[in-house]
Amino acid sequence: MLAELLQFLVSGLTVGAVYALVALGFTLIYNASDVVNFAQGEFVMLGGMVTVFAFAAGVPLPLAASLAILAAVGVGLLLHRLAIEPARGASAVTLIIITIGASIFLRGIAQIVFDKRFHQLPAFSGADPILVAGAAILPQSFWVLGGALLVFAGLWLFFERTLLGKAVLATAANRLAAKLVGVDTSFVLALSFGVSAAIGAFAGILITPITLTSFDVGTLLALKGFAAAMLGGMGSPLGAVVGGLLLGLLESFAAGTISSAYKDAVAFLVILGVLFVMPQGLFGRRSVERV
């Protein structure tokens, strides 16, 4: 019984860590711009696909992974420069549709540049599971969890310890005020797209050895990441992390104990339940509407 629960726990945390990274990407861009970037999943796809193709072409894995992150950051910055920046001042919903268009566009390009097949990547340190108290854990799970932790810690340090981080926080809190005190909010926005893309691509690289990848993996991840960000409270990095992990755990425990056909339904019912009690998510800021 304990082994079983531990198995569900590891499974949920691994998948949840990826949701958390996607949700973090959502949060960073949202904070800087109020945009819910539905192309976030495509960064994950880019991370996985570029790594796979570079690796297949003979590039060593660490270098392939770096290339993938660079490519994703490039795409993220271009997305900001060419699609979001020209529409500055448009309503949030217009910007969201732009990101939906961007996501369709990126998928369309990916199916041409890469292909429409599934691809795999060898696990970073072997595929033999490690037995812990009767549960079989893939070494790659530790990579995913460790990598996610690294990102969380890095972001925390960035926000808490650097001036630039403070500038980002200030922009998130009040864009106009931040601008008035001399924060280059446009730069902050570009930075957010770059960092979000990097985080997304990083998640894609870590998870591909477990889940495989293809040109269209992004859609579902974006959906789950968005739900996770909402569960945690939009705009809260801590909420994104907690929301992502929670969503992963909900799915895995629901699949393992209640019903595998309705595991996503269970997860969404819990999200709805949480939102009814806490309409701003678990860690969301209470916003006061000004008239």
Partner: peptide
């Protein structure tokens, strides 16, 4: 093969140039 890329591009262009 370029069908989806063009669709996405058009959606973006419409929203950028006719944002309302």
């Amino acid at each position: 093969d370029y069908e989806h890329a063009v669709l996405g591009l058009l959606i973006m262009l419409f929203m950028i140039f006719l944002r309302v």
